[in-house]
Design a protein around this nucleic acid. Structure first.
Lengths: 208, 208
DNA sequence: CGAGCAATGGACCGTATAGTCCATGCGGAT
DNA sequence: ATCCGCATGGACTATACGGTCCATTGCTCG
């Protein structure tokens, strides 16, 4: 599973790799703000300072570019979340994690939603490969949450018979649902409420 | 707040109203399946058997058509939800409501997501009017849930100090998040889990 | 029953956009 | 040093798509 997959098994020089990365990064930024279908290849080229032949040298077309964007955004989000969740082992830690996400989203009043979630709902019904990659990313993200919950369990803050995977799914859904409602209302309040409810539920399972 | 708003205050005959309705209904169906931006006006015309001049006779352009679609889908969803939730006053009733939504979504393996939620994430960042209409619809839907919770409260199945509005927000978010995860995984299981968790939380608040 | 406006058909247009092509530059391996 | 293939510039193309226009039909109201 190499990071950079050119259309065919062509070699890739350092220069080419840089250009490719610039294109994908610009595309990711534009697509986050404008949406995938509203972002044109010409805009991507203008933003990245690349030429058409450069784009088509590295990608077969827009669909493949979108897949590269999914991969990049996935890396970005997962890195952020690994940092944010890697050492969390308390409910309070989860609340701080939530605060960071909310604050991040508050600066744009909820607009654009979750970087992964928005991509997912725009792309899932059109491109099965991209959909599968996004499902995999959600699973990994949810895995990080499950790890946190398992740590809670290990320190006796969650009963040993609690279904970690289900709780992680519920927490992930609360997060994604919170993003959708915040995006529509242009107000992060529902996002806070929704994650809070999931965390309160997890907390309520605590023995004693 | 009349149902049919032509571009200007023009008169509208029964024949015209029917054509308009046919166009909006076809557009709603196509946009649910293909997404808003992937649906072309020509497709809408072909599906509804209308001509271009008919479309532009009733709408100023695609944006206004999309707004009419939001309105129609909103009516459809709200009617369905009023029927489904209007008489519910138990947790078991909420579970049946959840089952109906899940079953409905299971026949397409989660594809297309929530009729309102998908519209919301595709349109919210592009069209402020449509976004506001969708926010209003979510609020109404959430209001129906709040009504159910209030009935639970009235029959002593929820403590009187429970925050009905927050619980309704959390339930709504769990539903929307469940739709997103189900759409991405092409599997309704996360939707079941997520709503279940919200309902379990509400149930756990029950006195005794 | 006639005037006038809604309704319709459908050709037509401008442009935005994905995608193609070919000539040229550059860099690393031998 | 040289050669091959990656890398690049950018003009060019085809077409899909939103939107315009005008002639014609037919309904409704006075």
């Amino acid at each position: 599973m190499t990071t950079a997959n050119s259309p065919n098994g062509r070699r890739l020089t350092a220069r080419g790799a840089k250009t490719r990365a610039r294109i994908v990064s610009s595309a990711a930024d534009l697509m986050f703000i404008q949406g995938v279908s509203a972002t044109t290849l010409d805009e991507v080229l203008a933003a990245s300072g690349a030429s058409k032949s450069q784009l088509y040298h590295h990608f077969n077309g827009k669909e493949e570019l979108v897949r590269a964007v999914v991969e990049l955004v996935g890396q970005r989000v997962m890195e952020r979340e690994r940092d944010a969740l890697g050492n969390v082992s308390t409910i309070r830690g989860l609340r701080r994690w939530r605060d960071a996400l909310v604050q991040n989203n508050a600066v744009r009043h909820g607009a654009y939603g979750c970087a992964l979630g928005s991509l997912a709902s725009e792309v899932s019904d059109h491109d099965d490969l991209a959909r599968e990659a996004l499902a995999q990313l959600f699973a990994e993200w949810q895995g990080l949450l499950a790890d946190v919950l398992r740590r809670l369990q290990d320190t006796g803050r969650l009963p040993s018979d609690a279904s970690i995977e289900q709780l992680a799914t519920g927490l992930m859904a609360a997060l994604q649902g919170g993003y959708v409602l915040a995006q529509t209302a242009r107000d992060v309040a529902p996002m806070v409420t929704s994650i809070d409810m999931a965390l309160a539920h997890i907390e309520s399972l605590s023995p004693r």
